[in-house]
């Protein structure tokens, strides 16, 4: 449900860029870590609803989810953290650090050419 607030912030950020570029946005790429708990369908639904009547109406959102990364304390290997198998895939060590989760980022906007 917090996707509505994410959608509002996203709309403000894209509208801002669109004004600077003086162009109509067609699509936007977003990335987020798993701890942001963003559901694609809910975010797209919320964004469509609030973007009606703005310069961002009808734009397509692409959302990339990034897995959490672990780093092995023994061999330093960085790996995708999986809750059902929490150990280093290279040396099987169970001692590792969880690296900070990826933030919610607006990565790229695609604009129409005039």
């Amino acid at each position: 449900m917090h996707e509505t607030m994410v959608a509002e912030s996203l709309l403000a950020t894209i509208s801002d860029e669109a004004r600077k570029q003086n162009a109509k946005p067609v699509s936007a790429k977003i990335s987020c870590g798993m701890l942001n708990a963003v559901n694609d369908k809910v975010l797209c639904f919320a964004f469509d609803a609030i973007a009606k009547g703005t310069s961002c109406e009808g734009i397509r959102l692409e959302i990339e989810h990034k897995l959490m990364q672990g780093q092995c304390k023994k061999c330093n290997e960085r790996f995708d953290f999986k809750l059902n198998c929490p150990k280093c895939p290279k040396c099987d060590n169970e001692e590792f650090d969880l690296l900070p989760d990826a933030p919610l980022l607006l990565e790229q906007i695609e604009f129409e050419m005039e």
């Binding site: 162009a23 919610l104 980022l105």
Partner: peptide
């Protein structure tokens, strides 16, 4: 035809 622009902005920056 379209052009793509890299933004790299944190979406929740107002809250942050």
């Amino acid at each position: 035809m379209s052009r793509k622009i890299d933004v790299g902005k944190r979406i929740l920056s107002a809250n942050e």
